[in-house]
């Protein structure tokens, strides 16, 4: 279930050229470089902060940090890994701010989209809708490190190695978080509902 990012080789030539130009202060090069990952980056942040408006703010801030810090990017990892890590850290800061201000995690109705099969009847659609909302709530209730693990690995489909690098932990610690997160989400949704939805 991992996506094509796993097949990329570290810092390809075109990317390296863009990095060099961005490091020299060419904003167009930076936009091209980061723009290639913008849609997926935004999707990840929407999952992490569960709010599209806040996600837009977090992505803007992440890109600003990346732009200002591009001189420190040395190409030892893929550019997107470096960029995602900045965005994950920025998302966690946003969640901490929200906690400090006692704001409950908003559940953005559009943040989780389960494609309903075309031949679904009304009852099945209602069940899907309930499960969709349940999944949203369960993910939003996870502590940030567990949410990050689940979003990067199970929703975004990154490999364990990539996701652990982005989360800033070792693979063993990452796996532990992932299994705990799955256990919590499964408990929240219930086995019967999950199995019924998959039939």
């Amino acid at each position: 279930m991992t996506r094509s990012l796993t097949t990329r080789r570290p810092v390809q030539t075109a990317e390296r050229d863009l990095v060099r130009c961005a490091q020299a202060g060419e904003v167009a090069a930076f936009e091209q470089l980061a723009g290639e990952h913008a849609d997926r980056l935004y999707a990840v942040v929407v999952r992490l902060v569960a709010d599209r408006t806040e996600a837009e703010d977090v992505v803007q801030e992440s890109l600003l940090r990346a732009w200002r810090g591009i001189g420190r990017f040395q190409g030892h990892s893929m550019f997107y890994t470096w960029l995602y890590r900045i965005a994950v850290n920025e998302s966690n800061r946003a969640l901490e701010r929200r906690l400090r201000h006692g704001v409950a995690t908003p559940i953005d109705e559009e943040s989780v989209q389960i494609p309903a099969p075309a031949r679904d009847g009304p009852a099945s659609q209602a069940e899907q809708e309930e499960l969709r909302h349940g999944l949203d709530t369960a993910i939003a209730s996870l502590a940030p490190p567990y949410r990050t693990a689940l979003v990067l690995r199970d929703i975004e489909g990154l490999s364990t190695r990539e996701a652990a690098k982005i989360a800033g932990v070792g693979e063993a610690a990452f796996k532990s978080r992932l299994h705990q997160a799955r256990l919590k989400v499964r408990a929240a949704l219930g086995d019967a509902a999950l199995i019924a939805a998959s039939i």
Partner: peptide, 28 residues
């Protein structure tokens, strides 16, 4: 079976078609 269903469900929710807002580079 439930864990496998959960993994399929989460994978299916990936927002692959959602485009980032045009404003994301404004601060940069």
């Amino acid at each position: 079976r439930a864990v496998r269903a959960l993994l399929r469900l989460m994978h299916a929710t990936a927002d692959r078609s959602g485009a980032a807002p045009a404003s994301i580079f404004d601060r940069v």
